Amino acid sequence: QTVHVKGVQYHFPNPEEAVKFALKVAKDLGGRVEFHGDEIHVE
């Protein structure tokens, strides 16, 4: 599972961890989380 944050990719073997990370980052940055297939983008 890959999380993209402002052009940087973070790889997580566990999808659940990836989602938790993405939600935390989005909250910290005041952004939103978008799901694109296997990828999660924080915009």
Score class of each variant (00 low, 15 high):
residue 4 H to D: 04
residue 32 R to N: 07
residue 22 A to L: 03
residue 11 H to F: 14
residue 29 L to C: 07
residue 13 P to N: 14
residue 10 Y to F: 11
residue 33 V to C: 08
residue 30 G to S: 07
residue 19 V to D: 03
residue 21 F to R: 00
residue 12 F to K: 00
residue 39 E to A: 12
residue 21 F to E: 02
residue 2 T to K: 06
residue 4 H to E: 05
residue 7 G to L: 04
residue 39 E to I: 12
residue 4 H to P: 01
residue 30 G to L: 07
residue 27 K to H: 13
residue 22 A to W: 02
residue 18 A to Q: 02
residue 40 I to A: 03
residue 23 L to W: 12
residue 43 E to W: 14
residue 18 A to D: 00
residue 41 H to T: 08
residue 33 V to E: 00
residue 17 E to I: 07
residue 39 E to G: 14
residue 40 I to K: 01
residue 34 E to R: 14
residue 39 E to K: 08
residue 41 H to I: 11
residue 15 P to K: 15
residue 35 F to K: 05
residue 15 P to R: 15
residue 19 V to W: 15
residue 14 N to D: 11
residue 17 E to S: 09
residue 4 H to W: 15
residue 13 P to H: 12
residue 8 V to L: 10
residue 34 E to W: 14
residue 27 K to Q: 13
residue 2 T to I: 13
residue 15 P to S: 13
residue 15 P to H: 15
residue 24 K to A: 14
residue 20 K to S: 09
residue 3 V to A: 01
residue 39 E to D: 12
residue 26 A to M: 04
residue 29 L to G: 05
residue 40 I to L: 08
residue 26 A to W: 03
residue 13 P to M: 13
residue 28 D to N: 09
residue 37 G to E: 07
residue 9 Q to K: 14
residue 23 L to P: 01
residue 32 R to A: 06
residue 28 D to A: 13
residue 8 V to Q: 11
residue 41 H to G: 02
residue 2 T to N: 05
residue 29 L to P: 01
residue 3 V to Q: 00
residue 20 K to P: 02
residue 36 H to M: 10
residue 27 K to V: 09
residue 17 E to M: 10
residue 24 K to P: 01
residue 34 E to P: 01
residue 35 F to P: 02
residue 39 E to H: 12
residue 8 V to Y: 09
residue 40 I to W: 06
residue 23 L to S: 08
residue 27 K to Y: 12
residue 36 H to R: 15
residue 22 A to N: 00
residue 31 G to Y: 12
residue 37 G to Y: 06
residue 8 V to W: 08
residue 6 K to W: 13
residue 9 Q to P: 10
residue 12 F to L: 04
residue 1 Q to V: 15
residue 33 V to F: 04
residue 34 E to L: 13
residue 36 H to Q: 08
residue 2 T to F: 07
residue 15 P to V: 14
residue 9 Q to N: 07
residue 19 V to T: 08
residue 28 D to M: 13
residue 23 L to A: 08
residue 40 I to N: 01
residue 20 K to Y: 08
residue 18 A to T: 02
residue 21 F to A: 03
residue 10 Y to L: 04
residue 5 V to S: 03
residue 26 A to F: 03
residue 7 G to K: 04
residue 35 F to L: 08
residue 10 Y to V: 04
residue 23 L to D: 09
residue 37 G to R: 06
residue 11 H to A: 07
residue 22 A to H: 00
residue 38 D to I: 09
residue 39 E to Q: 13
residue 35 F to E: 03
residue 7 G to Y: 04
residue 43 E to D: 09
residue 28 D to G: 07
residue 1 Q to L: 15
residue 26 A to Q: 04
residue 28 D to Y: 11
residue 36 H to S: 08
residue 13 P to R: 12
residue 38 D to S: 13
residue 41 H to R: 11
residue 28 D to F: 10
residue 21 F to Q: 02
residue 11 H to S: 09
residue 16 E to T: 10
residue 28 D to Q: 13
residue 40 I to D: 01
residue 28 D to R: 11
residue 28 D to V: 12
residue 38 D to E: 11
residue 21 F to Y: 08
residue 2 T to C: 03
residue 4 H to N: 10
residue 37 G to M: 06
residue 5 V to M: 06
residue 8 V to E: 09
residue 24 K to S: 12
residue 11 H to K: 09
residue 3 V to N: 00
residue 8 V to I: 12
residue 37 G to C: 06
residue 30 G to W: 06
residue 31 G to M: 13
residue 36 H to L: 11
residue 40 I to R: 01
residue 3 V to L: 02
residue 16 E to Y: 11
residue 35 F to S: 04
residue 2 T to A: 06
residue 17 E to G: 05
residue 21 F to T: 02
residue 3 V to S: 00
residue 2 T to Y: 08
residue 40 I to F: 04
residue 37 G to K: 08
residue 41 H to Y: 14
residue 10 Y to M: 04
residue 28 D to K: 12
residue 31 G to L: 13
residue 26 A to T: 03
residue 21 F to C: 03
residue 19 V to L: 15
residue 39 E to P: 02
residue 41 H to D: 03
residue 9 Q to W: 12
residue 3 V to T: 01
residue 24 K to V: 08
residue 8 V to R: 10
residue 1 Q to D: 05
residue 12 F to W: 03
residue 23 L to E: 13
residue 32 R to H: 12
residue 19 V to P: 01
residue 24 K to D: 10
residue 14 N to V: 06
residue 7 G to F: 04
residue 42 V to Y: 02
residue 38 D to N: 14
residue 23 L to I: 13
residue 42 V to W: 03
residue 9 Q to Y: 11
residue 22 A to C: 03
residue 26 A to V: 05
residue 32 R to M: 08
residue 16 E to L: 10
residue 40 I to C: 03
residue 33 V to S: 01
residue 3 V to W: 00
residue 30 G to I: 04
residue 6 K to Y: 14
residue 29 L to A: 05
residue 22 A to I: 02
residue 6 K to N: 15
residue 4 H to S: 09
residue 4 H to I: 15
residue 25 V to T: 09
residue 4 H to M: 12
residue 25 V to C: 07
